[in-house]
Simulated scan of single mutants.
Amino acid sequence: MEHLPQRLLEGYSAFMRGRYAAERDRYRELAREGQTPETMVIACCDSRAAPETIFDTGPGELFVVRNVANLVPPYAPDGKHHSTSAALEFAVQSLKVKHIVVLGHGRCGGIQAALSPTAEPLSPGDFIGKWMNLVAPAAETVAGNAMMTASERQTALERISIRYSIANLRTFPCVSILERKERLSLHGAWFDISTGELWTMNPESGDFQRPEVD
């Protein structure tokens, strides 16, 4: 039995011959001096929406945390396990990032699950269902809108959930204090897997619009 799937071993071999060979000095510098990314991205774990690919970034440029539906839970110092909160704490307090981007995407399975609360859980623990309860109030409102098509409801909740996550980011003292001091800025973005379009959230209105890019 292979230690890793063959596709991964082949990919690693290509990486060593290509990207690592071209950026060897950069990797050695990062190993020696540590990482200093200016941007944290909170993204979905969907295999089709990798931030490093979408933004074409090199090693050390982004600090990325990925979870189902790119959600940020509210601040809850209750002694339980909080992986996203831990990553956020490290990015803000230790790495001192200047930007946090919540990156959503189209056709998100987690959002689809939130819009179908009566669907059969994938496991007895129903981890996805419990996690998606973070946006349950919005999901209930959107799901009940018969004037929208199913795809319109999906896109609407994908974007609303980004605003939810940004609001939850502000419940963390380390985030809200630095944002007030203008040492940290929060951003929302939504990526359309089908077309490759990126939509960014207007920080004042909350509307999503296409940025002007070359």
Rank of each mutant, 00 (worst) to 15 (best):
T36S: 08
A87Y: 01
R28Y: 05
V64M: 06
N133R: 01
E52A: 14
R170L: 15
H99G: 03
L95G: 11
S85W: 03
R28S: 07
D46H: 07
P211F: 02
R153S: 04
A136K: 10
F127T: 13
V65K: 03
E179L: 14
R66L: 07
G188V: 10
H3R: 14
T200I: 13
R163F: 13
E23P: 03
D25F: 10
L95R: 12
Y12G: 12
A119C: 06
Y164A: 09
I160R: 09
L198P: 05
D78N: 15
A114E: 08
V101G: 01
A21P: 03
G206Y: 04
T141W: 05
S116L: 06
F90G: 05
Q93F: 02
R107C: 12
V65Y: 12
L103M: 15
R107D: 15
Q154K: 14
C174H: 04
T39G: 04
T200D: 04
T53K: 05
A189H: 08
E38F: 03
E182C: 03
S205W: 10
P5S: 14
Q112A: 14
A31P: 11
R180I: 02
P73N: 12
Y20E: 09
T155M: 01
V97H: 09
I42P: 10
E38T: 12
S185M: 03
L186Y: 01
A87G: 00
V102P: 01
F191N: 12
P37W: 06
Q112I: 07
S116V: 00
R180Y: 00
E29H: 12
P51N: 10
P51G: 07
L71H: 00
H3T: 11
S123E: 11
C45K: 02
I177L: 14
E120S: 15
M1Q: 06
